[in-house]
Write a protein that binds this DNA or RNA. Sequence first.
DNA 1: CCTTGAACCTCTAGCTACTTGAGGTTTTAT
DNA 2: ATAAAACCTCAAGTAGCTAGAGGTTCAAGG
Lengths: 255, 255
Amino acid sequence: MNKNHKFSIGEFSEKTGISIPTLHYYDEIGILRPEKNPSSGHRIYNYQDIITLQKILSLKFLGYSLDKIANLLYESSFTVDLNESLSLHLQALDKEKEQIEQSIKSIKRVIKLVKEEGEVDSALLFSLIHGMRTEYIEEEWMESHMLTEVVEELTKKPEEDKIALDKTFIHLSKEVKQLYGKSVDDPKVQGMIKTYLEASFSFLGEDLIQKLADTNIEELDIQELENMAPSPFTEDEQNWLNQAMEFYMKQEELE
Amino acid sequence: MNKNHKFSIGEFSEKTGISIPTLHYYDEIGILRPEKNPSSGHRIYNYQDIITLQKILSLKFLGYSLDKIANLLYESSFTVDLNESLSLHLQALDKEKEQIEQSIKSIKRVIKLVKEEGEVDSALLFSLIHGMRTEYIEEEWMESHMLTEVVEELTKKPEEDKIALDKTFIHLSKEVKQLYGKSVDDPKVQGMIKTYLEASFSFLGEDLIQKLADTNIEELDIQELENMAPSPFTEDEQNWLNQAMEFYMKQEELE
DNA sequence: CCTTGAACCTCTAGCTACTTGAGGTTTTAT
DNA sequence: ATAAAACCTCAAGTAGCTAGAGGTTCAAGG
């Protein structure tokens, strides 16, 4: 009967796929304590130890820490208590999953951009990644400013549209680097600004823009958000771009 | 101009939401080294440090270790190299996500069972969880035995069906505990076995059973798999159940 | 100018679930 | 008898922090 079979730690490790140091560790922390040969100190595992180890692995699989497993191991039946703790774990896992999904989406976006655009300036890339990373945070911020609808609209946008906007931003950034120094009323400069703003507006859609414009956002908050965002432009480039934009806006108003 | 603004570590921490000990740590490992007041040793953060921190957070968001971030931080442009490493990360994240999804599914199944069945014997529960945990592993094992189709069929089964089978198993286990000791040809015992086998067969479907029956699986492997699985039954119960099942099979053959 | 309290400093230890390695003993095979 | 393989214990290292002890510096009020 192999139920009475005894295993050395090496055999046991082989059979269960758990490394020897890990078994030592489980022994040390007291969740799996095999018999010991009293003279040599060698560990002797038996059939019951296999079952205990399986319990440990099962509880680990459910997300329990070894600490908690130690307590759970010797309870003979599970009740509502377990259910509660399982629900908690479930929530935690859901959150983890969401985060991972966010990261996956972002990485895919970055990969696509780098592939299609070739070499990308790192400052620029960081600013894009920053944008993705803070999408979720900004959602919260926007919601706190009662822009729930805006948030919903934005998250609904398909990934391709977001990538398209990213690309526009890449091109803008490249053009800024090229055109910087020219007069702000230069047709090329104004053309660039027109292209960029139109792309942004078409991404957002008219009603969203209206809603955003209607909202009274305090200076301070904007300031803070901008402080936190890495810009792909130098300070001088940023100033120049702002001036060019102001000029563009004034021209628009005149028409 | 707030671009020249200097921050104490407290202000900086406040502004960025990163704790002071973490900032100390980032300083220590060299990924964010602010200026220091030479007399007092107090850290002085500036605008550039905000940007560096944002880069760090962005790369962390993409899943990089601080170790790798240290190397990436000072590259001025990202090329195909980055793309490769991003793809690797993507794979890793995908795996993580899969695992989490597996756990989530299992936990949901356990929660449902515990809710609907009330208190559940822990040996039984462990054996169910073990089943879920090894679903994936067994898939590999089955695939190595050229049962790819079987695997595909099984993973396609909806969660509800799996739960239903789990429930049948729970009831079987309860009935075994009750009926144990009766003669194996007792109608109640045979009825129990019939119910259980029929449920299993209807879950698997005829063609799957045929495929499984056709497959020549070596004794050893089966033995090993069974050794690894915790059973909700005592050894005696298991033997009794096996006899009852043999009896049932013989009766079936006679018909 | 002195004092008080907040903010800061460094340094050490602790966390999880292990892995790695040193240095020594026991078992197994020849 | 001896060599190699397997085992032992104990200490230290891993990532990315957090917590705490014990001491210094800064800002504001009296």
